[in-house]
Amino acid sequence: MANVAVATEWQLLCNRYYRKPLLYQMRWRHIDLSRNKVAAAPFGSPVAIILDDSKIVQLYSESALRKLRIFSSSGTLLAETVWKNPGGRLIGMYWTDDLNLACLVQDGTVYRYNIRAELVEPNVSFGKECFEQNVVECIIWSNSAACVTEGGMVFCLVDFGDPQPSKLAELDLELEGDVLCFAVVEPKYVMSGSVEVLLGVAEGGIVVVEEDSVQRVKDIGGEPLGVVSKLSVSGDGKWLAAFTGDGQLLVMPADFSEIKFSCNCELCLQSR
C-alpha cells in the first residue's frame, strides 16, 4: 500500500513525471498566499508578504492596518512594518542582489526595505512622465526594474544605485491591444547592451520593445503564435517560454528563430 501511495504523488506532464514532496511545514499561521503579494529571495533567503490591495481580502483577528512582513524560508517572522507609503497601489516587489526588498507602486516610485523591514533611503522614481500615468505591470530584477503604464509606455531603471530612468520606444495600444504579460531580457544578454522588453498583447504575438524600436513577432518558423498570456526568460537570457491562450507551452531561443519544444498543457491535464 505504501508503494501505491508514493506512486500517486507523481503527475504526468507531457512525457515526464513530476512530484512535489513536502519538505517541512511552514511556521506561519493564517497566511493565505493567494490573497497576498509574495516575494521570495533566492537560495532559501527571506520571504516578504503583504496583503494584495487589488483583491478583496478577509482579515482575521489582526489589525486592519496593512503590514509588510518578512519571514524566514521556514515561516518564522523576522520583522514587520505598517505599510503607509503614498503613490497608489503596490504593483510588484522583488528582492534585489544586495538583499533589499524593492517595492514599486502605481506612480512609479520604488520603495526599498532591508531585511529588518526598515526603509532604505533614498526612494527611487521612474520620473515625471511615468508619474503622470498609472503603472500597471512591472518586473524587478537584480538591481533594476522595468514597468508598463496604462498608456502603453515602457520605462526602465537599469541601476537603483544610479537612478537614471529611460523611456523605451512607444507602443501603439490601438494597434496591439492591451498588454497581457511581459518579460525582460537583461542588457548583458542583448547585443546592443540595452534592455529588451517582451510584451504579450491582446492582438496576438509578442512585441519586442527596445530603446528606439518596436518589433512585432507574429509567428515562429511559420507557425502563428496566437495570444500569449505568460512569458518567461531563462536565467542566461538564451531561452524564452511562452504560454498561449489555447493552452500551448512553447520554448524557443530568444532570437525567435524556431520552436524547440511545444506541449499542449490542456491535453496533459485531460489525460490525468
Rank of each mutant, 00 (worst) to 15 (best):
G92Q: 10
V207L: 07
M1F: 02
E118D: 12
C130H: 07
Q270I: 08
C181T: 15
E150M: 12
R29H: 05
K67I: 01
D236G: 13
G247Q: 05
I70M: 01
I56N: 08
E211W: 04
S166F: 04
P46Q: 04
Y60L: 09
D246N: 15
Q248V: 00
D219M: 03
G193S: 07
V184F: 02
Q164K: 15
K188I: 12
L269E: 11
R116E: 12
L78M: 13
G75I: 00
I115S: 12
S61G: 14
E174N: 15
I259P: 04
S271E: 10
Q164H: 12
S257Q: 08
L231E: 00
M153G: 10
C147N: 13
V136P: 02
Y17N: 00
T149D: 10
Q25V: 10
D178R: 14
V105E: 03
E266I: 14
P46I: 00
P86C: 06
Y94H: 15
R35P: 02
A2H: 00
I140G: 11
L168A: 08
S54P: 03
T76Y: 00
G108R: 09
E9M: 07
K218V: 05
L231N: 00
S271T: 05
I70Q: 01
I140W: 01
V135K: 08
A7Q: 13
G237F: 03
A102K: 04
W239I: 04
D172Y: 07
V120E: 06
N3D: 12
L175K: 14
T8E: 12
A64Y: 09
G127W: 00
F71Q: 03
L198P: 09
E176M: 12
G92R: 10
V233N: 07
L78R: 14
G245Y: 07
F155T: 06
A117E: 05
L231K: 05
G200T: 08
